[in-house]
């Protein structure tokens, strides 16, 4: 009997990475759009870098906000890929 450890490990790795990634990015989006924008400094910075949005004028709030929308867009792309996987 041969157990397909490779496939199982792959499922585990991919699942862990994608779950944590999507949840993390989405949470950053939530953090960026929620009203109390003066949260931990790190969150705002991480939001901006994760979204890859260049800082062009505006305050930290605008930056966090646009970064958050980039996060949501990224998650929407992942969901779209998920639908593609289901249909294909």
């Amino acid at each position: 009997m041969s157990i397909d450890w490779a496939a199982l490990g792959q499922v585990f790795g991919v699942s862990l990475a994608v779950t944590v990634g999507v949840v993390g990015v989405f949470t950053l989006g939530i953090v960026g759009t929620s009203r109390k924008a003066l949260g931990p400094e790190g969150a705002a910075v991480a939001t901006a870098t994760a979204g890859g949005v260049p800082a062009q004028g505006g305050g930290a709030t605008t930056l966090a906000r646009s970064g958050a929308y980039a996060c949501f867009a990224l998650c929407a792309a992942v969901v779209a890929y998920g639908i593609y996987l289901i249909v294909a």
Binding site: V23, T27, K36
Partner: peptide, 15 residues
């Protein structure tokens, strides 16, 4: 488990 920890940690400053 990891994702739950992460989301609570990231969102801890928010109501």
């Amino acid at each position: 488990i990891v994702a739950t920890r992460l989301t609570y940690r990231l969102g801890r400053g928010r109501a």
